[in-house]
Design a protein around this nucleic acid. Sequence first.
RNA 1: GGGCCCGUAGCUCAGCCUGGUGGAGCGCCCGGCUGAUAACCGGGAGGUCGGGGGUUCGAAUCCCCCCGGGCCCA
Length: 1061
Amino acid sequence: MTVLKVVDVLSKFEYNQFIVESWVKGFWAKNRVYDLVKAKSSLQPRKFYFLDGPPYASAKSIHVGTAWNKVIKDIVLRYYRMSGYNVWDKPGYDTHGLPIEVKIEQSLGLQVKKDIYEKVGVENFISYCKAFVEENMKAMTGQFREVGVFMDWDEAYVTYTNEYIEAGWWLIKRAHDKGLLQKGYRVLHWCPRCETTLADYEVSEYRELEDPSIYVKFPVRGKPGEHLLVWTTTPWTLPANVFIMAHPDFDYVRVKVGDEVLIMAKARLKAIMEEAGVGSYEVIGELKGRDLEGLEYDHPLEDLVDAQKGLRDYHKIVLAPEGVVEYEGTGLVHSAPGHGTIDYDIGVRLGFPIVSLVDDSGRMGEGSGAYKGFYFRAEANKAIIEDLERRGALFYKSTVVHRYPVCWRCKTPLALRATNQWFITVTKLKEELIREADRIEWRPEWAKTRFMNMLQELRDWVISRQRFWGIPLPIWTCRACGYTHVVGSVKELEEMGGYRPEDLHRPWIDKVTLKCPKCGGVMERVPDVLDVWFDSGVSFYASLGYPMRRDLYESLEPADFIVEGHDQIRGWFFSLLRSGVIGFSKTPYRRVLVHGFALDEQGREMHKSLGNYVEFEELISRVPRDVFRLWVSSNTTWEDLRFSWKALDYTFRDFTVIWNTFVFASTYMGLDGFDPEAVTLDSVRGYLGVEDRWVISRVNSLVKKYNEAMGDLRIHDAARALRSFILDDVSRFYVRLVRRRVWEEADTLSKRAAYATLYYVLKTWLSLAAPIIPFTTEYLYQHLFKPAEKNAPESVHLLDMPSANESLIDEELERDMDIARSIIDAALAARAAAGLKLRRPVRRVIVAAKDSRVLEAVSRLSDVIGEMVNAKSVEVKGLEFLEELRVYTVKPRMGEVGRDFKKLTPVIVELMRDKAGEIARSITSKGYYEAQVEGENVRLEPRHVDIGVEYPEWLSARESELATVAVDTRISPEEEAEGYAKEVVRRVQHMRKEAKLMIEDKIEVWLSGDEGIIKAVEFFEEYVKGETRAVKINYEEPPGTVYSKEWDIEDKVITIGLRKV
RNA sequence: GGGCCCGUAGCUCAGCCUGGUGGAGCGCCCGGCUGAUAACCGGGAGGUCGGGGGUUCGAAUCCCCCCGGGCCCA
């Protein structure tokens, strides 16, 4: 078999990347290529467990960043499959949670939570959520497939399934068994309109809001006239005040203002007095924060607030460095453990009561006395400030505008509020979490730093939400005796007297009651659902069916690789680790790669509201899939990606060059009937040219570099190396170099060697590139390589990843070629400077090497240099050679010379002209030139002169770092004639193309006009015939019947005619 | 306010870990090629390497401070 039969496909094909990709898509579907790839991988001995971070199925169209994310995953999976791993590639979808509930509420026009019960019913509501998510998943899967992601789409894991829910229950039970599951108060953001807690991640929207900014005086107990000064922007929390915090290390002052004494932080004194407009005050004492500890005070509103009655004993100063700052406030912080996170933690630590006076709807509730029924930010604030003022407890009041969290769906300002929630006390596992996190391999390394820092601030995990669309909390409480039981599985549910509902979601699960093992009473489920972060956190085992089946998880764990955006360091990476440690006391994953964000061209987030959002549909219709893939994978993975149509366009252009490279190969291999199975690299080893050995070395170096980069998860390094190899090394250098060998008509060994080399290099590259540009590589493989080999696998994706053949790597040769390329550049520049067209051969190029390494390299590669710069010979000389030819000009800088040498100036100017060479050499080498002029010692320095270098007219020279390269521009009559012959050849070729002749077509040529040119062609007739595939040249006016054209070659006119024979 | 990241040519980005004369692509100007060709190649102009300080013989690179942007928290 040969590649002959496919030539036409590639060369005649009008290249269209979109058509290429559609063809491949069809090919994959028709031949079930994913199944084949999967089947091959499943036979491999080494496991590679990839765990997909499930995208949130809340929309139909994926974000550019989501596409990037999946492409990274796909590249890694494809790489490991080709490298001989049994790859686990199940994708997943995250499907529960409030954001989805809200979308459904919006689509149904529901206003408040109550509407769900009253207007639609929970049962219907859940069905809507499910249907919505299913539609989204279907659309998203289609898009992931569209960009070529080879994952097990038919077996995707979905978090809303009964199996998944049951797996989630298992972990809650685990936490319970370990004594980590608790119920208690937690301070969380609460939306008073939606009447629900909001998860941390839901507190994402802030508004600039105006709030009171008040300084309140809390009387020091037993010291009339002395007050603790406290600052707050939330007067509504004052009725719930329990204690005041101070920083042990700060300096505090006692300040006399009028006839009162105020205590506050020294660092804040000036600012506060300025703000309050108090001109005269006197510091009468200074003390450390720690000296304030235990100081008791009275609450200024004690008699108005019922709840305050029982708090007298707790009203004192508590040392709490974490709650006090020096840049704002007074250094004394009013603490309401029912309304502040730090306040709460300290309150609990001290065993102080937790007072929360705001109810579900945001109004002051039981215990708030005079303020009962007042809405927290409105009436309550107003009334409290008035009361304080009336009582003389207000030092100063104004307002501030600051960022305040609002509910992201109804924009209502949120309240921090202690509510009863279920949580897992992961803080007890802190050391274990840190130990396990430390074992994980992070890319890049700073992700680890970030993760570790976060673990230092670990807080307990509040898992309960008062919502519907989520994993129901598997906790049942006895109506009679209050006994609580955690259910770990459906089986346990049945054993406890319950039953298996068809769907484990609310509301069906709510109807399942159990029999209390303590008193035999009826147990009902706690109505909460789980935080949606819990869902994805258990994916590492839940997606494998654990614990209902154990074998799969046990054989695969831990996950070998996960990758997500850097926002997931605190998100999924953390929730996974948390779940892993709770469930199995170890990290569920061993390697993490972090990727950046897809931003717009200005570096802003892409949002529909900003108008800079790129729809997937638009992306995929404007940009071929592989172009997108190559572009995103070239971006440094962990850095943000700035989306740019222009950048994609440029990447697209590279594909043309890649394509042309393969077309070049297939065209000539096809013409000559090259058979890669007969003419192997081994069989032509003795005939390899130096450029062949070079490119073979380069491709093996590439394989090495590529494998190292991929193994280290530096995908962008791999992608960039691939790109620059095919574009710079192969297309722009090697192909240019071998064209002449390939154009030979005869079947030479040199040509065979070139083909064998090219075939080997391109096929190797194709294998390496397959994970990154799976469509293009498949097309080229199917059309060029597969038909040429008898036992070639069905698809390029079934090939084995090449490993570097170190024996073919010749580092010295690669280094030498680098030198040669630099010399070539210099020579081309020298030619350009002399206005010599590349088509015109030059007699010789002289390379004056700056060191022996350059000298050796140029000697070794002189043929390559000669070919590339179209020189008959390349002479290598030492630096001294050109030095002899050099002519220096030394121009005096009259200002400097005049100032320094006064009267001697004219003589010195003359000297510079006469001894230019000597002076120039001396100044350039030693830095000065000394001479006796009219009996005086004269010292010329660089500032006195402008030194110029000139070469003889027939030499065009170029200085480079490695050498001075000079082109001998003299042309003999014969060379001039050859130049003309080439000009004619070029024009004939052009006309051949215009006449739409095939490369192999033979022609007859007519030539008339300028005598010099005719003579030149006659002289080089064999050459001209060979180049143009002309069987005959007639030196006469072309007959009217043939295709003819008049040409102007350097002002000489000729007429060329030709016809196919 | 904190942690981490980024800030290099007009634009997009390499180089920084392991200090040693600043790179690529695109754009611009000039030239070339035309048997890979709705391509391609060469040359040129263009940079206080965000700012400041320090370490060093030597800093884009290491350290500190500041400014601007991002992510995650507060």
